[in-house]
Simulated assay, not measured.
Amino acid sequence: MSLLEQLNQDMKQAMKNKEKDKLIVIRMVKAALQNEAIKLSQNELSNEEELTVLSRELKQRKDSLLEFKNADRLDLAEKTQAEIDVLVKYMPEQLSEEEVAEIVQQTISEVNASSKADMGKVMGALMPKVKGKADGSLVNKLVQQQLS
């Protein structure tokens, strides 16, 4: 089942269950996917393009959550956390830190990286492998640790 079909099904269920907050998030994600399709002049997005849009939406909310917590706006932080919880359900299963560390080590070996100067090469080869499955800041931290 494609992501759009899943969103439509969940949207109907949210309407039936009168889950207003969930419905708002699903509609927001659908709109973001449709906007991306229009931007790329396509009728349908590939799975990878859908994942990119979902990742972007999730990252925006995580950044907002951090800002709201720093500003002691707990009301907005709670609302944003609820949106994150809905979005996470549509993301692929996240890799553990150990799994990411293993992929990082393999990639460093593949590109023959030896110092922090090779960080760009490593990240360029690594990010497509873990796209949507691992947080970029975690990947960055692990690469820096292994290259130092």
Rank of each mutant, 00 (worst) to 15 (best):
S96R: 11
V104I: 10
K30E: 11
L23E: 15
E102A: 15
V111M: 09
V130P: 00
L51K: 12
M127G: 02
L87P: 01
A134P: 06
E36W: 03
K62I: 03
L126G: 09
E97Q: 13
F68C: 01
K39N: 07
V143H: 09
E102I: 09
K129W: 03
I38P: 00
R27Q: 14
D10G: 04
S114G: 13
P128V: 06
E44I: 08
R27A: 13
M1G: 11
K69D: 00
L51S: 06
T52V: 03
Q9R: 15
E78R: 13
E99L: 02
L147D: 02
Q42D: 01
L58F: 06
E78S: 13
Q42C: 03
A82T: 10
L76E: 13
E99A: 09
K30C: 04
Q81N: 14
R73Y: 15
L40C: 04
Q145D: 14
R61I: 00
L3W: 05
S2G: 01
N70L: 10
S115E: 08
L126W: 07
P128K: 06
T80P: 01
K22T: 13
M1E: 08
K133G: 07
L66H: 12
N47Y: 00
E5Q: 08
R73A: 09
E93T: 10
A82Y: 14
P92N: 07
Q9G: 04
M1C: 05
L138N: 07
E98F: 03
K39H: 07
I38Y: 07
